[in-house]
Computed example of a mutant assay.
Amino acid sequence: MENLLSSAQDIKIIFFDIDDTLRVKDTGYMPESVHRVFEALRQKGILTGIATGRNYYGVIPEIKALKPDFFVTANGAYVIDKDHEVIYNNPLPKQTVESLLAWLSSVDSDYIFYGSDNVVASKWSEVIQAAMAPVYGKLDVIPDYHQTHDIYQMLSISDHDDTLVLPDDLADKVRMVRWHPNSCDIVALNGSKADGVSRVLASLGLSPEQVMNFGDELNDLELFKFGGISVAMKVSHPDILAVADYVTDTVENDGIEKALKTLAIL
């Protein structure tokens, strides 16, 4: 703990996941302590950022109202600052998108497109509603959205999603990261929240040792291994708990504020 407290004094920027980290995904509950945390960090001159699998469209108003300095969205593929200046823009190649669509069709899977400012579905079904509605509400159905928009991330989604395996010709271009029993994020092979955060650090002249991360799910794994201090929420995936530097309480029990106080950042 002594080493952790010492490292915490070097932190210059803190990134937060959204779902089940800043707020409870299924209920939308976000404690008042989160507002206190962001204001206190601002007063101390510590920068803040959101690092999420959602795209910017999916960053809900109450999160934007916290006025973070940076948004690392679509698992690192689209990164902007608080003034909407683009720091990093890495859409999937159009041929890769076409190949993914052909494969998903062959395995009888529906799909979700993430643009920079929209999330759309290939259709609307009970399976898609169960996975997506708690996060985004009902999505527009635009199966050919990719023809007129850049795609930063795709989702496979079906009642047999856990059986899907990328073919070799796609496995060297993209990877699948499970976020729901019936759905996986499909991101660029080297794409991750860590990649997006690294672009922010480079723009600021900061090192990985100067960043702290809060998260709970598998798409936080690369970021937790990236550097600095990683804090897992109590309800985190076991793989996240295994690599975290510190485990804090749940959203409902003010886990973020408790961790920052324990580590003497606040």
Rank of each mutant, 00 (worst) to 15 (best):
S230T: 01
S6C: 00
L201Y: 10
F224D: 02
T148G: 00
E222C: 05
P238D: 13
G53A: 09
I186G: 04
D83P: 00
A77N: 06
D19C: 10
V79N: 10
I256E: 08
S236R: 03
L104M: 15
W103C: 08
S7N: 13
N253I: 00
V177T: 13
D239R: 13
V86A: 11
I151M: 09
A242G: 00
R36G: 01
L266K: 00
Y136L: 09
S33K: 04
S99A: 15
G137N: 11
A244L: 04
L4P: 11
I80P: 02
Q147A: 09
Q153W: 00
E62H: 13
Y114G: 01
P68L: 08
G205H: 05
N213F: 10
D245P: 02
T248Y: 10
A102M: 07
S192T: 11
G215K: 09
V59M: 11
H180Y: 13
V86Y: 12
R23Q: 14
A194T: 02
Y246M: 04
I128Q: 05
L221M: 01
C184R: 11
Q153N: 07
I265N: 12
E257I: 13
V211D: 02
D144Q: 13
G196K: 10
I186C: 04
S116P: 00
A130P: 00
L206H: 06
I18E: 04
P143A: 05
A51H: 08
W179I: 04
K12T: 07
T73I: 08
R54S: 06
E257K: 10
M132S: 05
E98Y: 07
T250N: 13
D19V: 11
Y78C: 07
R54W: 07
L139C: 08
L66D: 07
Y29H: 12
E257H: 04
K225V: 00
A65E: 15
K82L: 05
A133H: 15
G58K: 12
I157S: 05
P91H: 03
S207Y: 07
T96P: 01
L204R: 15
L101P: 01
D220G: 09
P31H: 03
